[in-house]
């Protein structure tokens, strides 16, 4: 399961970062330390929110994350894929378009078209 951290400054979400397996994220790769150093007052308004993503989707070597559970048909639509060209595999089993994908489900989209 992927755990994400959002960095909120002045009540606005600036960005979110995946946590490393041991629960850290590396602020050196962000520019926000500069922001914090330049305006000490802002420190009071910085908050971190930790949350888990609902589902992990793999498609042709790319990984996508979605925050809410949804129907398989909706997932294909969100990625602009056709049900004629992609099969939805949830936890190793093929599912039809009306299947509701839950939190924690591992989803794979399989492209069925191959070149001539």
């Amino acid at each position: 399961m992927l755990v994400y951290l959002t960095l909120n400054v002045e009540h606005r979400t600036l960005n979110r970062f995946p946590l490393t397996p041991n629960g850290f994220f590396d602020i050196r790769y962000t520019n926000y330390d500069i922001l914090i150093a330049d305006s000490p007052d802002a420190l009071y308004n910085i908050s971190f929110i930790c949350y888990e993503l609902a589902m992990k989707v793999e498609c042709e070597g790319n990984a996508y994350s979605f925050e809410k559970p949804m129907l398989a048909s909706k997932l294909l639509e969100q990625l602009s894929l056709s049900r004629e060209t992609h099969l939805v595999v949830v936890n190793g089993k093929l599912v039809t378009e009306d299947h509701r994908i839950d939190r924690d489900d591992e989803v794979k989209l399989i492209r069925v078209v191959s070149g001539g």
Binding site: E84, T85, L87, V89, L94, I110, R111, V112, S114, G115
Partner: peptide
């Protein structure tokens, strides 16, 4: 192709996805 890919998945046939 869709039917054959579905058959391969159901039967656990391990095939190569990448194209030549």
């Amino acid at each position: 192709e869709r039917e054959i890919a579905a058959y391969a998945i159901m039967k656990g046939i391990d095939y190569i996805y990448e194209e030549c």
